[in-house]
Simulated assay, not measured.
Amino acid sequence: MRKYFITGLLILVPLAITAWVLSLVISTMDQSLLFVPERWQPRTLIGFDIPGLGTILTVLIVFLTGLLTNNLVGNYIVRLWEKLLHRIPVVSSLYGSVKQVSDTLFSSSGNAFRKAVLIPYPHQDCRTIAFLTGVPGGDVKNHLEGEYVSVYVPTTPNPTSGFFLMLAKKDVIELDMSVDAALKYIVSMGVVAPE
């Protein structure tokens, strides 16, 4: 009986968590309908709410923004907008930091998390999977002797938090493993081994 109960848990828990996360994301995106005038909301027009309409609206707005800013005029407007934001004291530093991180992570030409590596961490006799993020820059590289690389070490089971380390390149082993496979391995705490 215990075996069947555990088997049932192994099937239902991932489904329940997935459904809960999707429900949370969709309900959060549905909140974007609050910015639509009352007379244009589904509750006013047809008498009831349509679940997921906010998600569709959010995806559509993101897509149209990308479409409009991907030409000469849209690009010019974005540059003007960014110049304006860079003149506002607190907003400038916050927006600049977020923009730099998002450009690094989401840009197709960026190098963030493009390679899974094996590194000695937390001490020389242990190994963990990390992601190559680049090379140290600025004044930092002036204080490092030899060739160094920058890596991000995600925590288990939540890879969104972690540690940023600079290691000697000779201590870093590049893995023949995709970033997705490495993330699954980390999130599963080593239970789901890569093929």
Score class of each variant (00 low, 15 high):
residue 2 R to T: 15
residue 4 Y to D: 10
residue 8 G to S: 13
residue 10 L to S: 09
residue 10 L to Q: 06
residue 12 L to K: 02
residue 14 P to H: 05
residue 17 I to F: 05
residue 22 L to C: 09
residue 28 T to K: 03
residue 34 L to H: 08
residue 36 V to N: 04
residue 37 P to I: 11
residue 39 R to Y: 06
residue 39 R to L: 12
residue 42 P to L: 04
residue 44 T to W: 10
residue 45 L to F: 06
residue 47 G to S: 04
residue 49 D to T: 13
residue 49 D to H: 09
residue 50 I to V: 13
residue 53 L to K: 14
residue 54 G to M: 09
residue 56 I to Q: 05
residue 56 I to K: 08
residue 57 L to R: 09
residue 58 T to R: 00
residue 59 V to P: 02
residue 61 I to A: 08
residue 61 I to M: 10
residue 63 F to E: 02
residue 63 F to W: 14
residue 64 L to E: 03
residue 64 L to H: 02
residue 69 T to V: 10
residue 69 T to P: 09
residue 69 T to F: 14
residue 78 V to N: 02
residue 78 V to S: 00
residue 81 W to Y: 11
residue 81 W to S: 04
residue 82 E to N: 10
residue 83 K to M: 08
residue 86 H to E: 13
residue 88 I to N: 11
residue 88 I to P: 04
residue 89 P to C: 03
residue 94 L to H: 01
residue 96 G to R: 00
residue 99 K to E: 11
residue 100 Q to I: 07
residue 101 V to R: 03
residue 102 S to A: 14
residue 102 S to I: 08
residue 104 T to W: 10
residue 105 L to A: 14
residue 107 S to T: 08
residue 109 S to A: 13
residue 113 F to T: 03
residue 114 R to G: 11
residue 114 R to V: 09
residue 115 K to N: 14
residue 118 L to E: 09
residue 120 P to I: 11
residue 122 P to W: 03
residue 123 H to Q: 10
residue 126 C to D: 10
residue 127 R to G: 03
residue 130 A to W: 05
residue 131 F to Y: 11
residue 134 G to A: 03
residue 135 V to C: 04
residue 136 P to T: 05
residue 137 G to F: 00
residue 137 G to E: 07
residue 137 G to S: 10
residue 138 G to L: 10
residue 139 D to E: 13
residue 140 V to S: 14
residue 140 V to E: 15
residue 142 N to W: 03
residue 144 L to H: 06
residue 144 L to G: 07
residue 144 L to C: 12
residue 147 E to Q: 12
residue 151 V to S: 05
residue 151 V to Q: 00
residue 152 Y to I: 06
residue 153 V to A: 04
residue 154 P to T: 06
residue 156 T to R: 05
residue 157 P to M: 01
residue 159 P to F: 00
residue 165 L to M: 09
residue 165 L to R: 12
residue 165 L to N: 07
residue 166 M to P: 09
residue 169 K to Y: 15
residue 172 V to R: 00
residue 173 I to R: 09
residue 174 E to V: 14
residue 176 D to L: 07
residue 178 S to Q: 03
residue 179 V to M: 07
residue 182 A to I: 08
residue 184 K to Y: 04
residue 186 I to V: 13
residue 187 V to F: 00
residue 191 V to G: 02
residue 192 V to N: 01
residue 194 P to M: 12
